[in-house]
Simulated assay, not measured.
Amino acid sequence: MFLRIFVFAALIAIVYFGIRRIANDWRARFRDLDKETHERDLKERARPDVIDLKKDDDGVFRPGSGDDKGQGPRR
């Protein structure tokens, strides 16, 4: 009887820690991907040929006023 309880407890512990390790590995992988994507986006945003679009009052995205980078059309 004691052996059966011990075996079930051991199996439950193995499954629990296995699932926990898999979840942590996936979380770390997605965190790394998010970091790489963020760094790539920052590099692309810093390029001089990239225009920032601002949402206008009517809901249409238009080039910004150019105050922050000195780019965009003047009105």
Results as ranks from 00 to 15, higher is better:
3 L>N: 07
48 P>G: 12
1 M>C: 10
66 G>M: 01
45 R>N: 14
55 K>A: 01
42 L>A: 10
1 M>G: 10
59 G>R: 05
13 A>P: 02
68 D>I: 03
58 D>L: 02
25 D>L: 13
17 F>A: 02
10 A>P: 01
4 R>M: 12
59 G>C: 04
5 I>W: 15
57 D>Y: 09
9 A>F: 13
5 I>G: 04
45 R>Q: 13
62 R>Y: 04
43 K>N: 10
12 I>F: 01
61 F>Y: 13
53 L>V: 05
22 I>W: 10
73 P>K: 11
73 P>M: 08
71 Q>H: 07
67 D>V: 09
60 V>R: 03
47 R>V: 12
68 D>A: 07
23 A>G: 04
18 G>V: 00
16 Y>V: 03
35 K>Q: 09
66 G>H: 00
33 L>P: 01
34 D>C: 02
57 D>R: 08
63 P>V: 04
62 R>V: 10
65 S>V: 00
20 R>H: 14
46 A>W: 02
68 D>V: 06
34 D>G: 05
3 L>K: 10
58 D>W: 03
17 F>D: 06
28 A>H: 11
62 R>E: 05
10 A>I: 06
11 L>Y: 03
59 G>F: 01
7 V>K: 13
47 R>Q: 14
56 D>V: 00
22 I>D: 14
73 P>V: 06
24 N>C: 05
19 I>P: 00
67 D>E: 06
15 V>K: 13
9 A>P: 06
15 V>Q: 09
53 L>A: 03
56 D>N: 05
5 I>L: 14
46 A>L: 09
49 D>T: 12
73 P>H: 02
44 E>Q: 14
3 L>D: 08
69 K>P: 00
73 P>G: 08
42 L>I: 13
17 F>Y: 15
57 D>K: 08
69 K>G: 02
68 D>W: 06
63 P>F: 05
71 Q>D: 11
38 H>P: 02
17 F>S: 12
61 F>H: 06
5 I>N: 10
46 A>M: 11
70 G>T: 01
72 G>W: 00
60 V>L: 01
7 V>F: 06
75 R>F: 11
49 D>C: 11
28 A>C: 10
75 R>Y: 13
33 L>K: 07
62 R>C: 02
59 G>L: 04
51 I>Q: 14
54 K>D: 08
70 G>D: 07
66 G>W: 00
29 R>W: 11
64 G>K: 01
25 D>E: 15
54 K>S: 06
